[in-house]
Computed example of a mutant assay.
Amino acid sequence: MQTRKLYLLGGNTSQEEANIHFAKAAGGKNARIALLIVYREGWEAFLPRYTSHWISQGVQQNNISVIVPNENNELDTAKAVDIVSNASGIFIGGGHSETYYSLYTKQPFNKLLHKKYAAGTPLAGNSAGALLMPETVMLSPHDTDNQQAWSGPGLGILQNQLISVHYSQWQDEPNLISGLHHHNIPFGYGIDEDACLYLENEKPAAVFGSEQVKRIEKGTL
Rank of each mutant, 00 (worst) to 15 (best):
P108L: 02
A149V: 06
D82S: 10
P108M: 04
L131Y: 01
P69K: 03
G10Q: 07
L9P: 09
M133Y: 09
K116Q: 12
N146H: 14
N110Y: 06
I163Y: 07
S52C: 10
M138Y: 07
R215K: 15
N30T: 11
I83P: 00
I37E: 06
W43M: 13
G219M: 11
L103D: 01
T77C: 08
N73R: 12
A128N: 10
G125W: 04
G179S: 09
S14H: 10
N86H: 13
Y189W: 09
I191K: 00
Q212H: 15
K79I: 03
L9Q: 08
Q147G: 00
M138D: 00
I177S: 07
K218E: 11
L112R: 07
R32K: 15
L36R: 03
A87N: 11
I55Q: 11
H114I: 09
N110W: 03
S97C: 13
E17D: 11
L113Y: 02
P141C: 15
I55A: 06
W54Y: 14
G190I: 00
V207T: 14
A34N: 08
I83C: 06
R49V: 12
N72P: 07
A118I: 12
N70C: 12
T99Q: 10
R4C: 02
L8G: 05
W170A: 12
A26M: 00
G10M: 00
G209E: 03
L35N: 03
T13M: 14
T51E: 11
M133Q: 09
K214P: 06
I37S: 02
N12Y: 01
R4M: 11
D172K: 09
G152F: 08
S178T: 14
P204E: 00
P48S: 10
K111N: 02
A80I: 07
Y117C: 02
P186K: 09
K115F: 02
M133V: 08
H182N: 08
Q107I: 04
S140F: 09
I55S: 01
